[in-house]
Simulated scan of single mutants.
Amino acid sequence: MKHEPGIFEERDEEADAASIARARADIAAGRYHDHEVVAEWLKTWGKPGRLPFREWLAARNG
């Protein structure tokens, strides 16, 4: 029996290239946050009052 690849097994080279290009453009434009900041926000998951990242960041930066 031949293996039929699932939807997550097939690569979409065009979509991958577009995603990488968007990521590089965001970084070049300064639209990123340090790992430490994102890790701090992730620690709020599953806790009461968790906020979406942008709201949490605004409250954190006062």
Rank of each mutant, 00 (worst) to 15 (best):
M1P: 11
K2T: 05
K2M: 09
H3D: 05
H3L: 13
H3A: 13
E4A: 14
E4N: 11
E4P: 04
P5S: 01
I7T: 01
I7R: 12
I7E: 06
F8T: 06
F8I: 06
E9T: 07
E10I: 15
E10F: 13
E10D: 00
E10N: 11
D12Y: 08
D12R: 10
D12V: 11
E13I: 00
E13T: 04
E13A: 12
A15Y: 01
D16A: 09
D16F: 14
D16T: 02
A17L: 08
A17C: 03
A17S: 10
S19M: 13
I20N: 11
R22V: 05
A23H: 15
R24S: 06
R24G: 04
R24C: 08
A25G: 11
A25M: 14
D26L: 14
D26Q: 14
I27A: 13
I27L: 15
I27E: 12
A29S: 12
A29P: 04
A29T: 00
G30T: 03
G30M: 00
Y32K: 09
D34F: 00
D34N: 03
H35Y: 06
H35S: 06
E36Q: 02
E36C: 10
V37M: 01
V37W: 01
V38D: 10
V38R: 15
A39T: 08
E40D: 05
E40L: 08
E40C: 02
L42G: 04
K43Q: 14
K43T: 10
T44L: 03
T44K: 14
W45D: 09
G46R: 15
K47V: 01
P48W: 11
P48Q: 11
P48S: 07
G49H: 03
R50V: 03
L51F: 03
L51K: 15
P52I: 02
W56F: 03
W56V: 02
W56M: 04
W56R: 12
A58H: 08
A59V: 10
A59D: 07
R60S: 05
N61I: 08
G62E: 05
